[in-house]
Design a protein around this nucleic acid. Structure first.
Lengths: 150, 150
DNA sequence: AGCCGACTATTGGCAGCACCAACGAATTCG
DNA sequence: CGAATTCGTTGGTGCTGCCAATAGTCGGCT
């Protein structure tokens, strides 16, 4: 027997909050990716933004989703190729593209909504509803703190 | 005035736990990266593992850090190039490399320990010590749940 | 002794996410 | 009007987390 030492993480790392955070996020992100199947998080985010903002420019969608403009372009290319979104030049401002969800886009979004919700359940299943709320609150506060610093 | 709509994230995304988690992790990860300066998280993890495990094979280090073997190779390449780590073939098992931290490696690790600790303070500054403990506990439980499923 | 399976390090690749720089076209501001 | 800014687009970069294939080595089993 080679005295398998169980390969415990180094003490320094085991309780390091930032590591706990990033690793857990990676695990959850993995579940989300599986749940989204043929879509990426960018696709879901943009479709959600398009649905809630109505016709909007790519810049507006990107800002709403916290995405870089170039990533918006790439994701919208995918979505238009699948017929889930329409890009049309804005007559009022010819720099802009007006982006709208198609019927298929709305259907796809609803489907993804369901899948995403289902994943949330599995992702945080070790926590009670109260604990999930606490976690969300703590994360939101940390998140806000670093976000408003811009 | 173009009625700047504050660009709030879509409602679907704003409170989505998985998104809150991954985005906060990204923010914190960014701070960590800045704090580590010329090092990556992989470097720090491996040096920590090497320090705590003593002479160990790359496989053991990788397992301890939850890293892929190929990533271990790359990171150790960097560290040996900087003279922070020594790789020597294990005479007892010629498949293995025995990895040990050099004196400079230990000094660098101590330096990084300090930087990392300092970053933790800033990263979670909006939370009280109690809240940080709660957050760490909740994350640890979610983390364990997904880790032990392997 | 020989063979076969398992382990080790290494190479080379991929995908996702977050960024950044530069550009032309178009608009707004001073 | 001219300058500064905005918008979409292109074409990159880096970090992190993977996977597959390979050559060398070891261990157990026959």
């Amino acid at each position: 027997m080679t005295a398998r030492p169980a390969a415990q993480p180094p003490e320094r790392l085991r309780r390091l909050p930032s590591r706990l955070l990033t690793r857990t996020a990676a695990q959850v992100q993995r579940l989300v990716a599986e749940g989204l199947g043929e879509y990426r998080t960018h696709h879901y985010a943009l479709m959600a933004a398009a649905a809630e903002l109505g016709p909007a420019s790519q810049a507006a969608l990107g800002q709403a989703c916290g995405m870089d403009r170039s990533d918006v372009v790439a994701a919208l290319d995918d979505l238009t190729a699948r017929g889930l979104v329409r890009r049309a030049p804005d007559p009022a401002d010819r720099r802009r593209n007006t982006v709208v969800l198609t019927g298929n886009g709305e259907r796809a979004l609803h489907e993804l909504d369901a899948r995403v919700q289902e994943v949330q359940q599995r992702a945080f299943s070790p926590l009670t509803p109260d604990e999930r709320a606490v976690l969300a609150d703590l994360l939101a506060r940390v998140n806000r703190h670093h976000a408003e610093a811009e």
